[in-house]
Structures are given as structure tokens and as C-alpha cells.
């Protein structure tokens, strides 16, 4: 994908994200008694921190990008 397309996509997603954060959050959500599915351990943002750490470690040592989410493995000695 050409770089300018990714740059435009980046700006679009930033704008959409900010707009959603400002306007949408208050109208979303559930009552406490409707959290049964959300309460599953499998629904946690990071279910296996060590796996996520390994994954981030491999990617930031083999690719030009970094950041995002999860838990990375710390200082690198991997390539």
C-alpha cells in the first residue's frame, strides 16, 4: 500500500477515533447485570501477557514500526 494512502488512513482513523471518543462513549455501555459475557477471562484485552510479550518482541525486532497495544518484552537483543 502506498505511503500516502497509509498517511491518509492514519489521519482518517485519528479523526474518527477522536470524534467517537468525544460523542459516542456516553451513549454506549451496559448495566452491571448485563456483564456476564464481558466478565469472561477470555474477553480480557490481554488474556496471555507472555504470549503478547513474545509477539511484540518479535515484531519490533523484525519490522520498522512499534507501538499499539499489549505487553512487550522489554529491551531487545533479538536480531
Amino acid at each position: 500500500m502506498p505511503g500516502d494512502m497509509i498517511t491518509r488512513l492514519f489521519r482518517l482513523v485519528v479523526a474518527a477515533g477522536v470524534a467517537a471518543a468525544l460523542s459516542g462513549c456516553a451513549s454506549m455501555g451496559v448495566k452491571p447485570w448485563d456483564r456476564d459475557l464481558l466478565a469472561r477471562r477470555s474477553m480480557a484485552p490481554v488474556t496471555h501477557p507472555n504470549l503478547t510479550g513474545f509477539e511484540q518482541h518479535i515484531y519490533f525486532s523484525k519490522e520498522g514500526s512499534s507501538g499499539g497495544s499489549g505487553s512487550a518484552g522489554g529491551g531487545c537483543g533479538c536480531n
Partner: peptide, 25 residues
């Protein structure tokens, strides 16, 4: 490509989000 900062920050954010999420659980 050392990147300890990323790891530390990701871990901190992950811990906060997970803790609050589990609190809802």
C-alpha cells in the same frame, strides 16, 4: 531496535485496563 519503553508502557496500560476490566467482571 531496543524498545524497553514500549514494553513497560504496554505492560502498564495493559495492567490498568485488565484490572478495571476484571473489576467489572
Amino acid at each position: 531496535t531496543p524498545d524497553a519503553t514500549k514494553g513497560a508502557l504496554r505492560a502498564a496500560l495493559g495492567a490498568m485496563t485488565a484490572a478495571l476490566f476484571l473489576a467489572t467482571g
